[in-house]
């Protein structure tokens, strides 16, 4: 029914989303995409072509670290948060929470208007 969130909407927050799905346990790229889809009930669908450069950037920034696993027959790259990643996540989570609260307050009156009958 509702459209998926567009890239321009997610631009500032995608890093944070990836960090947050990694906060509980290590995941590999495909699993991260899946977690994002599940957590957002399908609203957030990050293209693979966006996801992997993003993961590599976070890795460069030392917010996540990787480990290779060869046990499944295919080489698989697992990512997990570093201490800096945990810190960043916590900092930004607070900020984004406040931001979204502000936005909600602002948008409330607009959404309160009952939809016009078709």
């Amino acid at each position: 029914m509702t459209e998926k969130f567009g890239p321009e909407l997610m631009r500032g927050s995608l890093d944070l989303m990836v960090l947050s799905v990694l906060s509980a346990e290590p995941k590999y790229g495909y699993l991260i995409g899946q977690s994002l889809r599940e957590a957002s009930r399908g609203m957030i669908d990050v293209k693979a072509g966006t996801m992997y450069p993003l993961l590599h950037r976070l890795e460069d920034d030392k917010l996540i670290k990787c480990r290779w696993d060869d046990s499944t027959g295919r080489r698989r790259k697992w990512y997990e948060l570093t201490a800096a990643g945990h810190r960043r996540l916590k900092q930004q989570a607070t900020q984004w929470y406040e931001y979204s609260q502000c936005l909600m307050e602002m948008l409330k009156p607009i959404l309160a208007v009952p939809p016009e009958p078709a």
Partner: peptide, 14 residues
């Protein structure tokens, strides 16, 4: 080759 390996894993899973 690391990038190829990572993306190959994704492609096959997908």
């Amino acid at each position: 080759s690391e990038i190829s390996d990572e993306l190959r894993d994704h492609l096959e899973e997908r």
